[in-house]
Design a protein around this nucleic acid. Structure first.
Length: 101
DNA sequence: ACGGTGACTAACC
DNA sequence: CGGTTAGCCACCG
């Protein structure tokens, strides 16, 4: 571990992210709601800061599109996991892939 | 204390 | 379907 997360928020976010099973995904909003927050943007900030060690590719936007700037990489990994993708292949089929705890 | 900012979202047109 | 707009909350200088 390279970083220690003293912030409860960041700790909670990463905990949820690591609980997402392969082949499934959660939106930033889903994660925020899962920890009783309404700050999907803050979730994104945590991921941008210390999400490198977590399965960040399983965290996508509400419309099923992966994080801005990492779309190609994320989609590659998601496909490898067998996550259901849209016919176009550029976004995740949220209806099928969404993980609900 | 304050305002700007962001790996966001939902509502509208 | 797609482009815009306003709303939200946590973090940082």
């Amino acid at each position: 571990m390279t970083q220690r997360f003293t912030d409860e928020f960041a700790e909670a976010v990463l905990g949820v992210v690591e609980s997402i099973p392969a082949g499934s995904v959660m939106s930033y909003g889903d994660i925020a709601a899962a920890i009783g927050s309404r700050a999907p943007r803050a979730v994104g900030a945590v991921m941008a800061t210390g999400g490198s060690d977590a399965p960040w590719w399983r965290v996508v936007r509400a419309d099923g599109r992966p994080a801005q700037g990492l779309e190609a990489e994320a989609l590659r990994r998601l496909r490898a996991e067998g996550a259901p993708l849209s016919p176009s292949g550029e976004r995740v089929a949220m209806r099928l892939a969404r993980h609900r705890p």
